[in-house]
Nucleic acid binder design. Structure first.
Lengths: 228, 228
DNA sequence: TTGCGACATTGATATAGATCAACTTTTTTA
DNA sequence: TAAAAAAGTTGATCTATATCAATGTCGCAA
């Protein structure tokens, strides 16, 4: 399953801040990137294990989730190309506070933690980029904390759909996740997720065709997502 | 209510990392600290407003909380002396993502954001301190996300009590918060908080005398807090 | 092509926790 | 010090959502 350096990763050096920065700094050699391919469903990193390298998602979608002692997971984020995994080690958390697994075949690029940290410390521009990325993920989690506690299922499903629409930058998109996972993104049961979707479809606020979703009335959907 | 520089703040320069660091760097003058006193119940900062300075809590307890559009709040943390408020501006969040208000009379010390940022950028040791503080607060929030979603009230109240016990570093402590606030810390209603407390007292796991709490059987309490 | 497993859907039922109401106790204020 | 306000407590009821159960649908491997 694992293909090393030999795999050419087309757009990684173009898109990733860390590559751009390293190149600017003439530190490109330092990175020693390792390209790793993950099959659909494969685990990219596991909550609680040591963070050994920073991973950049190059191709494919993945889910970032936390799991309690009890079986049920909460999906924090859907990761898309150019997203980082394992940032938190820079912020003094040596273990992954979340798990990530591939929703489809994923190409990733991994670099040593030390390299990341060196560039972080030596380049203020890059440091700010990373800090801001981390900062906004915190804001997102706080928002989630509120949503999951104060909104009811319709609102939470509406919010998840709007999140996905923003993520894929379109009102019409194909779900990369199952109904159960859409539930985990909103912290509700699979059954109630389906019920909420059906309801929204019957009210002609969204269109559903299997995994294909169309947001017909984002205005109303936003209003629903704001309601408690 | 506000007393400026003239107020001597006894232990701030000794305890706060930022003072120690600034002094080491010979940048003490740069800080221009302003000492501000908040009466019990007063708001120290408000969610959504611009962060203009970093605040260090010198004396007294405060609550850090997020509020949805709907009335109910969730308390994230109880702040104790030497805790920072407004760190997030360093991480690219110009607005407070939370509110803080005084649970009792609070002495604080405020310094300009620019000064904080300068020291942050110029001193790697301080940067790491701040990064780690921020990182662990993120870990704490993630933990809360799970707890509030997967545990039931007994478990959440048990967890809150253990949190307070760790915070005050004793099995016997005086609550700085009301029952309603203890509920907000666990995201449950005041009534159910009281019921859970009474239950735990009847089972002789804790002792209650008004605001005074004794954790009699932390073993069992931990087990309860782990259960889903 | 058939049958199996994962995914999706719908209805019925159970329940954790919110809310409402009434009351007591403590704290604050005038 | 009295009166008012805030905090704390307990019981009864309601409701949002989980859970259980049954069934349908789709894609894929033998």
């Amino acid at each position: 399953m694992r293909i090393e350096k030999s795999v050419k990763c087309i757009d990684c050096p173009l898109k990733c801040d860390i590559y751009l920065t390293a190149r600017e700094m003439g530190l490109e050699e330092m990175l020693e990137p390792v390209y790793i391919f993950y099959k659909k469903y494969e685990s990219i990193c596991r909550q609680g294990s040591k963070i050994k390298n920073a991973t950049i998602l190059i191709q494919g979608n993945a889910k970032m989730f936390v799991s309690g002692h009890c079986s049920r997971n909460i999906i924090l984020n859907i990761l898309i190309p150019s997203n980082y995994i394992g940032l938190t080690s820079v912020y003094g958390l040596p273990d992954y506070p979340y798990s990530v697994s591939a929703l489809e075949d994923c190409h990733t690029c991994q670099i040593e933690n030390e390299a990341l940290e060196q560039i972080y410390l030596q380049n203020q521009h890059f440091m700010k980029l990373l800090n801001h990325a981390f900062g906004s993920s915190v804001a997102a989690i706080m928002n989630k904390l509120i949503s999951l506690n104060q909104k009811q299922i319709r609102g939470r499903v509406a919010e998840s759909l709007l999140y996905l629409s923003r993520l894929y930058d379109s009102n019409s998109f194909k779900l990369s996740i199952t109904r159960r996972e859409l539930g985990e993104l909103s912290a509700i049961s699979e059954e109630n997720t389906v019920r909420a979707l059906t309801e929204l479809r019957n009210e002609e606020i969204i269109g559903i065709d299997g995994r294909n979703i169309v947001l017909k009335d984002t205005e109303t959907l936003s209003r629903i997502s704001m309601n408690c």
